[in-house]
Design a protein around this nucleic acid. Structure first.
Length: 319
DNA sequence: ATCAAAACCCGCCAAT
DNA sequence: TGATTGGCGGGTTTTG
């Protein structure tokens, strides 16, 4: 058992409970079932310990001051209450010295404003909720704001977009710390998508779960997921949904943000990715299992993941 | 790596 | 009258 990995999360008055909850769920929840040799130790802290009002009108009692940040290996800022307001000097200083010490500093949603105020994003690419991207850019011109990704990872500094993208970033960190297999199991425990790539457009990707279960589109989606190895033409899927091809296309795109063909290709790559995470199965075999030729699988994999299947697999070994 | 054929995607629009 | 539907054309993407 190596030294405990300390995660300090900084809260403010007006804290966003969802973002905070995300971080707590990922890092504070004990995971004995994972059988990893270390896990995180989570501390919620604030400049002034005591009751802090959360969005929704309830109070969160915080017992620890910013000194928790001084010992943390990872510092999280899940949101700031006012994107136009100033960050207190004490918080800025805590972030700066944590970063100087070599701690990882990450933000979710508007938390990027705190990182930017502390100067940690100067000259670097960063993201935040798309609604505040313009303001972030205007207030901190030296930050290269990219509003169309889910998260940006600079290893030492990480930023993520609105709300659920924070989950993606947390899972991304777990993937880095513990490997894709563990990250996938945590994701499955949380019942969220295993792996949404950081580079994906914020608007395009929508979880399947947002489609009501009795929706014909949802039926076509689960049919597709269960029959990835087969052909799955537009016509097939439209038939499953009991819709005309044209209407199916239209409603599918409306429901998911992606056209049927693209979505199916994505599902194929994702399924292939999960298979690649287990050693032993050849890439050609994976391709067949997800309904693509080897060349087609490589092609789509690279387009979606940004690296070849073999690179992806090699990268997992190194963790 | 290249290329033709097939499939997909989406604006358009007449018919419900 | 406004919303929904579904066929068509043809530019774009995928496949083999």
């Amino acid at each position: 058992m190596r030294e405990r990995h300390l995660v300090a999360c900084i809260a403010f008055d007006g804290i966003a409970p969802f973002e905070l909850g995300t971080v707590a769920e990922v890092f504070a929840q004990p995971r004995p079932e994972l059988a990893v040799d270390w896990w995180y130790s989570f501390t919620l802290c604030a400049e002034k310990p005591g009751a802090h009002r959360a969005i929704g009108g309830f109070d969160i009692m915080i017992y620890t001051g910013l000194h928790a940040v001084d010992r943390a290996h990872t510092v999280v800022v899940p949101s700031v209450p006012d994107v136009r307001g100033d960050i207190s000097p004490a918080v800025m200083h805590a972030l700066q010295s944590a970063h100087r010490r070599g701690a990882r500093v990450m933000s979710i949603c508007t938390g990027a404003f705190a990182l930017a105020a502390a100067g940690l994003l100067d000259g670097r690419e960063a993201t935040t909720h798309w609604r505040h991207a313009d303001l972030l850019q205007r207030r901190y011109p030296r930050v290269r704001v990219n509003p169309s990704v889910l998260y940006v990872d600079h290893t030492d500094v990480l930023t993520s977009a609105g709300t659920t993208a924070g989950i993606d970033l947390c899972l991304h960190l777990i993937r880095h710390d513990h490997g894709a297999d563990i990250a996938g199991r945590v994701a499955r425990r949380m019942v969220v998508a295993t792996h949404r790539e950081g580079g994906q457009a914020q608007f395009i990707e929508q979880p399947v779960a947002e489609v009501p279960a009795d929706d014909p589109i949802a039926e076509a989606m689960s049919y597709a997921n269960e029959h990835l190895a087969t052909r799955l033409s537009l016509e097939d899927l439209a038939k499953v949904a009991h819709l005309s091809v044209r209407q199916f296309e239209r409603r599918f795109t409306y429901a998911t943000g992606a056209s049927p063909g693209r979505w199916v290709a994505q599902q194929r790559v994702r399924a292939g990715m999960r298979m690649l995470e287990k050693p032993g199965i050849s890439i050609d075999m994976v391709a067949v299992r997800v309904g693509l030729t080897a060349a087609g699988f490589r092609h789509h994999f690279r387009a979606l993941v940004g690296m070849s299947p073999s690179e992806y697999r090699r990268q997992l070994q190194r963790t």
